[in-house]
Simulated scan of single mutants.
Amino acid sequence: MHSKHTGSPATGIVRFSQEGQWDRDVHRLLRHARREAVVAVSNPAPSSDHLRLGQVVVDDLLTAGTQVRLLYSPDYLETRDRQPLLRHSARGAQIRVTDNDFHNALIIDRTVAVLWSGAGTRHPYAYLVREPALLQALHQFAVLSWQSGHGLTAPAESVVIDDTDRAILNALNLGLIDEAAARRLGLSLRTYRRHLADLMTRLGVHSRFQIGVRAAQLGLLDDPGCR
Results as ranks from 00 to 15, higher is better:
D75C: 02
R82E: 10
L187R: 13
V159A: 00
N43P: 00
L221Q: 08
G149W: 03
G219N: 13
G120S: 00
R31T: 08
T121L: 10
G7W: 08
N43A: 13
L85D: 09
I13F: 02
T164Q: 10
D81V: 08
E157G: 05
Q210F: 03
S117W: 07
E19H: 01
V114R: 04
S3C: 10
A182L: 05
P155S: 07
T191R: 14
D198M: 08
A180C: 00
E131I: 05
A142W: 01
H2Q: 11
A93T: 00
I108L: 12
A10R: 11
S158C: 07
V39W: 07
R35D: 13
A33Y: 04
L62V: 04
V114C: 07
V97C: 06
R96S: 15
V160F: 05
Q67G: 02
V97N: 06
A215S: 10
R82V: 14
E179P: 00
T121Q: 08
L106R: 05
Q21K: 11
W116I: 02
T121W: 03
R80C: 14
R69P: 00
Y127D: 10
I108D: 03
H88R: 11
L29A: 13
R69G: 02
T153L: 12
L71V: 13
V56Q: 14
T98Q: 05
L62T: 11
A137N: 10
G20L: 09
D81R: 14
G120C: 08
A113F: 02
A126P: 03
S8T: 11
D25E: 14
S8H: 12
D198W: 01
D178C: 03
T201E: 15
T98A: 07
C226A: 14
G20N: 11
N173T: 03
V112N: 01
G175A: 05
G212P: 02
L106K: 01
R183T: 12
Y76V: 11
A180R: 15
A105E: 08
R15Y: 03
E157I: 04
A156Y: 07
A40D: 09
S158G: 00
A105I: 03
G175F: 01
F16I: 02
R110A: 12
L85A: 07
L220C: 02
L30F: 06
I211M: 05
R91K: 14
T191D: 10
G212K: 13
S17Q: 12
R194G: 00
W146Y: 09
D59P: 00
G7E: 00
R190A: 14
G118F: 09
L53S: 09
S17E: 15
D81K: 10
M1W: 04
L115E: 08
R193A: 03
P124D: 05
G149A: 06
A126T: 10
